[in-house]
Amino acid sequence: MNHYNTLKILPTQGLEPRQFLRYCFGIAELSPPELLEEETDSQYRKKCITVLCAVLGVQRPTVRKWGSDLNFDGIPNYCKISLAYIHAAEIIPNQLKSILIGEYNAPEVDAQTFLERILLEGLTEQQILQTVSHANFRATCVKTLTQVLHIGTKSVQDWGQDMSFHKMPKIHKHTLGYALAAISKSSKAWDKQAA
Rank of each mutant, 00 (worst) to 15 (best):
S187L: 14
N94P: 01
H3D: 13
P93L: 11
K97T: 11
V156C: 02
I99V: 13
E108L: 12
A89G: 08
G160A: 02
E108S: 12
L7T: 10
R45A: 11
A194E: 06
V109P: 04
N2K: 10
I9H: 03
V58Y: 03
T50N: 05
F20Y: 14
P76M: 04
H3N: 13
S133W: 05
F72V: 11
I91D: 08
D191G: 04
K192P: 08
L129Y: 12
A139F: 12
K65H: 09
Y85N: 07
Q147T: 06
I92Y: 09
P76T: 00
S187M: 03
G152V: 05
V55K: 05
K80Y: 11
T131V: 07
A182N: 03
C141D: 10
T124I: 14
D110M: 11
G160Q: 05
E125R: 15
A139H: 12
S82M: 05
F165K: 02
F72T: 09
L10T: 02
I171C: 04
S155V: 10
Q126C: 02
K80C: 15
V132K: 15
H172P: 03
Q127C: 10
D110Y: 10
R64L: 15
T40R: 04
L123P: 01
L7C: 01
L100I: 01
G57K: 10
N71R: 11
L10S: 07
N5G: 12
R138M: 15
